[in-house]
Computed example of a mutant assay.
Amino acid sequence: MITNLYFVRHAHSTYTPDELGRPLSERGFSDAKIVAGLLLNEKIDYVVSSPYKRAIQTVEGIAKSLNQEIFIEENFKERELSKKPVEDFNHVITQVWNDFNLSWDGGESNITAQTRGIEATKKILKDFEGKNVVIGTHGNIMVLIMNYFDQKYDYNFWNELAMPDIYKLTFKNESLIDVNRICN
């Protein structure tokens, strides 16, 4: 049975140190309306999101258009790079992509984040088999999930993502059979 997962990287947010409560920016809200419009053409059955406000706000429009509730899935939250802010983000992120087992102080390694992301993905594939499911999430965890199924989705791919961005992953059972970018 074919299941389509529409991974939506959240729109632009207003930076605050509060990861959970960081909201979309004005531009982000405008882009979220575009996301909703693009997804309306996809016959969406369910909407799932990371618990982070910016991810929820990015997929809220499609959920409201379909009169659907948003199911929260903790394991689609962004990977924690480090407990404390890092001085050189580019260096730190490059290093974890070069070594999937590396973790910074209090942060998740790629393999740890990927494992929880795959656990959530497999749960969605089982619970919503044969359906079209939107998943509001974040760039790093999204690409780590994609990387599990095909290693061409790597640091360079992540680094080229737009904000927001939408990728439709088509599965037959738990096997990835196609990936398409949804854009206008």
Rank of each mutant, 00 (worst) to 15 (best):
S49L: 02
T14I: 07
R22F: 03
V47S: 09
N41I: 04
A11S: 12
S30I: 08
Y46K: 14
I44R: 09
V48S: 04
P23Q: 08
F29M: 15
D45W: 05
P51S: 11
F7K: 01
Y6W: 04
V47C: 08
S30M: 13
L24W: 03
K33H: 04
V47A: 06
Y46T: 14
F7A: 01
R22A: 05
S49N: 06
V35C: 14
S13C: 08
V48M: 04
V8I: 07
Y15Q: 02
E19C: 10
V48K: 03
E26R: 07
S50N: 11
G28C: 05
V8R: 08
R27C: 11
P51D: 15
F29S: 12
D45A: 09
L40W: 13
V35Q: 11
H12Y: 14
N4P: 08
E19L: 13
D45N: 14
H12E: 10
S25E: 11
K33Q: 03
D45S: 12
E42L: 08
R9G: 05
L39V: 02
R27E: 13
F29D: 09
S49W: 12
R9W: 03
R22V: 01
S30R: 11
P51E: 14
A32D: 10
G21H: 11
G28S: 02
A11N: 06
F7N: 05
F7H: 05
R22W: 02
G28H: 09
L38N: 14
R27F: 03
G21C: 02
I44D: 15
K43N: 15
E19G: 08
I44C: 10
L24R: 04
T14A: 09
D31N: 14
N41V: 09
H10M: 02
P17C: 06
V48W: 01
G37E: 07
F29H: 13
L5S: 02
L38I: 14
L20A: 06
A32N: 11
R22D: 07
P23G: 01
D31A: 11
I44H: 12
S25L: 05
L40C: 14
Y6C: 01
V47L: 10
P51L: 08
T14L: 06
G37S: 10
L20K: 10
Y15F: 09
L40V: 05
N4K: 09
N4F: 01
S25Y: 09
A11W: 09
Y6M: 00
L5G: 11
S50T: 11
L5F: 00
S13D: 07
A11F: 12
H10Q: 02
D45M: 00
L39H: 12
S25I: 03
Y6F: 06
R9F: 10
A11C: 13
E26H: 10
R9K: 08
Y46N: 15
V8Q: 08
Y15D: 07
L5C: 04
V35N: 12
L40D: 15
A32T: 05
G37C: 05
L5T: 03
I34C: 05
Y6R: 00
L5E: 08
R22M: 03
R22S: 10
T14S: 04
I44F: 07
V8H: 00
H10P: 00
V48N: 00
N4Q: 01
N4S: 15
E42F: 00
